[in-house]
Design a protein around this nucleic acid. Structure first.
Length: 273
DNA sequence: ATGGCATGACAATCATGA
């Protein structure tokens, strides 16, 4: 096992981000522009919707990132981009959730700089009580068990992704409207708390945040303009990483752009340990 | 009111998302 390296060698902060791009093909120009203006070192992407052979590896390499991918046609698909100038080689790449026993590409994990980085696209769940909802709850259970083992071997662990869970009422624009609905139901929230119980902290809630902070807004009904959103994209940090976390923000500007993803990125900053 | 919009596969609608 490699020795845990400092979170921020050289003292420069390390930035970790997650973004559900809702089609990497459509969003690539925005992603490249974003990477060009923001210094993010580790980027977790969900809903790339692109098979591995069509992944825009060259364009992202040219932008300075090494790509680790687990994709499929049409649906799902995840990737981790590592900024080569800042980070060493990745090891221990895992491209599926062990034990999940399905074809859906929803998880990728890498070890880099003594950290275990897990990028996840949780199932949506469709509606409470549906087959997809049951699949979601089971998937979360499988993830939780696997993470427990991962944490035992890698205490410096970050879980980033589209969780498709709004953990609390304050993460919902209209809690009464959403009460008991998919993304907000109690079993899903229990699942989220089960992840916290592993010793993970919600990076966003380590800090004072504006009210009505969300990461997803429906394309319909002018939901973004009307601030009708949910906070369903998260960065969870193990204690060893959380104690060095100095900021966590939602990059709302990307949702304001032309032809946006319906999700905005979340970015966490780790200071020197 | 189960729609509204966006994406991909596919060639007019349909599955899926959240």
């Amino acid at each position: 096992m490699t020795k845990a390296a400092p979170a921020a060698p050289g003292g420069a902060p390390l930035r970790l981000a997650t973004w559900n791009v809702n089609s990497l093909k459509v969003r690539l120009p925005q992603l490249l522009a974003w990477l060009n203006t923001r210094t993010v070192d580790i980027v977790c992407l969900q809903e790339t919707k692109v098979p591995d052979e069509s992944f825009p590896t060259q364009a992202l390499q040219d932008a300075g990132y090494e790509c680790h991918i687990s994709g499929q046609r049409t649906y799902n698909g995840v990737a981790i981009l590592l900024r080569s100038a800042r980070l060493g080689k990745a090891q221990g790449v895992v491209t599926a959730l062990p034990g999940a026993d399905d074809e859906q590409k929803r998880l990728i994990a890498v070890s880099v700089e003594g950290m275990r980085i897990v990028c996840a696209y949780f199932p949506n769940g469709e509606s409470v009580g549906s087959d997809k909802y049951r699949y979601k709850l089971k998937w979360i259970q499988t993830l939780t068990k696997w993470l427990q083992a991962e944490l035992a071997g890698n205490p410096r662990l970050a879980l980033l992704g589209d969780f498709n869970i709004a953990p609390e009422a304050r993460d919902v624009h209209d809690p009464a409207l959403w009460e008991g609905q998919v993304l907000c139901s109690e079993p899903e929230r229990e699942g989220f708390r089960g992840l916290l119980a592993l010793g993970l902290g919600d990076a966003f809630r380590l800090f004072e945040q504006p009210e009505r902070s969300f990461t997803w807004w429906d394309y319909r009904n002018l939901a973004f303009r009307r601030k009708m959103g949910l906070r369903i994209d998260h960065i969870l940090l193990s204690r060893a990483l959380a104690k060095n976390c100095t900021a966590c923000e939602i990059d709302v500007e990307l949702r304001r752009q032309e032809r946006p993803s319906d999700h905005a990125p979340v970015v966490a900053t780790l200071g020197p340990s």
